[in-house]
């Protein structure tokens, strides 16, 4: 409760300062709109449904691409850790591609897939998958070998060891990698949405883009607000429970 009060005071103070700057007319209202006009934009956009539909489009792209990225990144990471051949090939490629800013996939995706949903999907997957592969691999490699040995003496073999020992033991690192993958995917999706308009759906990035075209600063700031909120919400809803669980069981947070 105390924390909420402190946070509220902080954010109310921020808005007041913003209002003060606006009222002082230091910069043109075109550049610095009032908090009220941003709020008005958000309310209007919420009323006529643009906000909801854009949020839905963006979140859907993000979630499908992200889920797919994890679904292939996790097994590939395990294979990379298990087989030296995979590590020296795919593992090396993943290491290099993970270092590539994920925005760099956008031009390639557009050339390959055109201005389509597939391009968006591809960009999100590329943002996710390399981080997950690398995190899973390092996570598995850093497991104390004694876990596997203890498991073996108790009769665990092969697939059982992988599912019941290796994977859970690597979980803190894997969650860390999933979090990083999420951040990369989120950034590159925004870049893609701002960069091109895909006719099959206007995401939040498109709204941001049109805000700029129309010189509508209230829209730009309002959408940025929504983006920020989505980021926070994802952290709270998706990652915080995992990290709490890890802290609770392991006594540590995700690495």
């Amino acid at each position: 409760m105390k924390r909420i009060v402190k946070a509220s005071i902080f954010f109310i103070a921020l808005v007041l300062i913003w209002e003060g700057i606006y009222a002082a007319h230091i910069w043109s209202p075109v550049l610095v709109p009032s908090p009220a006009s941003v709020a008005r934009y958000l309310i209007d956009a919420a009323r006529d449904g643009t906000l909801a539909s854009a949020t839905l489009v963006t979140v859907r792209r993000l979630v499908t691409g992200y889920a797919f990225g994890i679904a292939i990144g996790l097994p590939l990471g395990l294979l990379t850790a298990r087989f030296n051949l995979v590590r020296d090939t795919l593992g090396l490629a993943a290491l290099g591609l993970q270092g590539l800013p994920s925005v760099c996939w956008v031009p390639l995706a557009l050339l390959w897939f055109g201005e389509t949903e597939s391009a968006m999907f591809f960009v999100v997957v590329m943002g996710t998958v390399w981080s997950v592969i690398i995190a899973t691999e390092t996570g598995v490699r850093n497991i104390p070998p004694i876990f596997a040995r203890a498991a073996r003496t108790m009769g665990s073999r092969g697939l059982h060891t992988w599912l019941r020992v290796i994977l859970p033991a690597a979980l803190p690192a894997v969650v860390g990698g999933m979090k990083q993958g999420w951040a990369f995917a989120w950034r590159s999706l925004m870049a893609a949405e701002i960069y091109v308009t895909v006719m099959s759906g206007f995401g939040l990035g498109s709204l941001l883009h049109y805000g700029r075209e129309l010189n509508a600063m209230d829209q730009v700031i309002g959408i940025m607000f929504v983006l920020l909120l989505i980021g926070l919400l994802a952290d709270r809803v998706f990652f915080s429970p995992w990290e709490r669980m890890l802290r609770h069981r392991w006594g540590t947070a995700a690495k």
Binding site: I146, F147, T153, G155, P168, A169, G251
Partner: peptide, 20 residues
């Protein structure tokens, strides 16, 4: 090969932190 009739205990406990 390892067998359930011979169990090993190590210097570090080797307990699994993901299980209670």
């Amino acid at each position: 090969s390892p067998g359930r009739d011979r169990m090993m205990m190590f210097q570090e406990s080797a307990l699994f932190p993901w299980l209670d």
